[in-house]
Design a protein around this nucleic acid. Structure first.
Lengths: 343, 343
DNA sequence: CTCAGAAATTTACGCGCGAAAAATTTTCGT
DNA sequence: ACGAAAATTTTTCGCGCGTAAATTTCTGAG
């Protein structure tokens, strides 16, 4: 390999015995050149590992192969997991994904979108911060760059949304809990960072009323993305004052539940569905760690795979369609109830 | 803003009333142009938000402002956290960080390094997979691109290493545990993915011998990065067979400990240092979740901030120095013992 | 006020490749 | 075997900017 070092496409075309633009076509789409030509290029490729300069390639191209993946908070394993799946699918489809995390900070989200523009991405998969997003900026970005929202919806923004059906999450947990024991109260942050949280509270209230039960919402204080700590502090306060209104607590999400379980353990409140348990706890998301809480957490699981797959497919279709859909679609996947020991 | 849309630096230079190369100089280093010129450029910048085309900028530049950050497994909050800190420092210093995760797969790590080459990065911060890394490829990459290793060292590879002092981790936990109760056995994976794990076992054995105690290592089976599950299964097996050789277990890392605690809870083994506890458990890393385990986990904490800061500073110095150091330095930060409820 | 020398700016050229237009080769029906 | 359409390749041009060399402007001592 590498008899003389190849510096650019010109030199590579020379050793392959073809003109440069033909080589360019080959890299754009190998099947677009004659089989004999292709064979010669690939033979040369074996001997002189050459790769087109990525900056030059994108510099004068109307549509790049770049895809941006933006998540609100990468230190949350849920987003790490879904980002991983999205990355994989992008690579498999020949795109170059770049991963960004807003780290929970709206200004950073704006910055990311800004620098994403200059990457001229073919499309963007965006899980916005939600309530905290600077709506005007996100909206403007989506108007400029073909974008599919996922996980967290913002009405009317982006060409499509793919996520989980919060109503399905809550209805499954509430129904299971009411069927198997006392009715659940709902444990959440008063000012949640994420719009899903609002949807879940609304779903809880609605479902409880439909069942002829009284919804009881416990809203705890706290800002930011340190949900576990917020859940723990909130739970400690509840335990130390009035206690929970029923013996069954449904948490808005698993991270809050993790904090709550930690508080219960600290205070000697036994959690579980067996005899001698003071509390049942269930939640939503199937966070990667929810299997290892004590007790393991009964929760409604995202269909990670489906969300990732569909989000990417939607983006693919969007790019095919030239960046615009006739109408905005919203795809929601149902939850899958995961019964564990906590409820 | 935006009276007429600016398409390139030429047009921007025109509205600013200066020549394009001067504008180019300004973007390269604002202080390199005369104050009056600078004022005019910045005035124009207010009115016509223009940003240099990132591909054109990098295309013909010897040294880009790109920095690659590579971690072995981003779904591990530890790496998410340190990656976040590294990103922040890069941005603050005017670099453009790009984050990659090998997702625990050596082939992917090689691919990442490959595509990183084409980004012509000024430097790379690499936390290698370690034992699983394709050493030849990583070595070759480091020879070509200025690289600082962090978290996980590979002897002689890269221009420098910045990480935590495994010996300090283990000595603090072992000493605390022996001082406050029965001597610890050591709980680890037989074939750990990470070289730190080996260093920790060696440190454990050495420290125990120095204290005149018998080291007892429990090596459990399991491959991959699902440490919690591996720890849980391993612990279940130990509990169901011989049990732990002493009433104190020191885990190689927090993720294993999380699995172990979950197994203990399942089996009704009470963990903690109080009366009525069957087991004390301690560990290393101060994983973001170790505060929320049941009981909360006593552990030796990484100095995340120092590692991130120093790693980035080292890379900065490396870039300044033209990509090579005279000799390879290794910087290790000591651990900080975090006492919680588990031991 | 003058003139060197330094500092800033402009001129001129090239980077590596994409893409439309032009030229060539191939294909295929007759 | 012939010619026109189709497929492929080559020619030509330009993208947006970095950078060395040439030119201009500025600074300060005399």
């Amino acid at each position: 390999m590498a008899e003389t070092r190849i510096r650019n496409m010109e030199e590579f075309a020379a050793v392959a015995g073809i003109s440069r633009p033909t080589v360019s076509k080959y890299f754009h789409d190998p099947s677009s050149v004659r089989p004999t030509t292709r064979a010669r290029i690939e033979a040369a490729l074996e001997r002189y590992d050459y790769r087109p300069n990525i900056f030059a390639v994108n510099q004068n191209r109307k549509l790049t192969k770049n895809v941006g993946i933006v998540v609100p908070y990468l230190a949350d394993p849920f987003f790490a997991e879904i980002a991983r799946k999205l990355e994989e699918r992008c690579i498999a489809a020949g795109f170059r994904p770049t991963l960004f995390s807003a780290h929970g900070r709206p200004e950073l989200e704006v910055e990311i979108l800004d620098s994403l523009r200059s990457l001229k991405p073919a499309g963007v998969l965006l899980a916005p911060l939600g309530r905290a997003s600077v709506r005007r900026e996100v909206e403007q970005f989506c108007a400029d760059v073909p974008t599919v929202l996922f996980d967290s919806n913002i009405d009317g923004v982006g060409e499509a949304f793919v996520g989980s059906d919060n109503f399905s999450f809550v209805s499954q947990t509430v129904e299971y809990l009411t069927r198997s024991g006392e009715e659940p109260c709902f444990f959440e942050m008063r000012t949640p960072a994420n719009p899903n949280a609002n949807k879940r509270r609304i779903a809880y209230v609605q479902i409880m009323e439909r069942l002829g039960l009284t919804p009881r919402v416990i809203s705890i204080e706290g800002e930011g993305w340190a949900f576990e700590e917020i859940g723990r502090q909130g739970a400690l306060r509840v335990i130390e004052t009035d206690g929970f209104p029923t013996d069954t607590v449904l948490c808005s999400n698993d991270r809050l539940a993790i904090g709550l379980l930690s508080a219960c353990y600290e205070r000697g409140l036994r959690v579980g569905r067996g005899e001698g348990s003071a509390l049942r706890v269930a939640s939503h998301d199937d966070h990667p760690f929810s299997r290892f809480t004590c007790p393991s957490l009964t929760t409604a699981a995202h269909d990670y795979d489906s969300v990732a797959t569909r989000a990417f497919e939607t983006l693919g279709a969007l790019i095919e369609a030239g960046g615009r859909f006739d109408r905005r679609t919203e795809t929601l996947f149902a939850a899958r109830l995961v019964l564990r020991a906590s409820a």
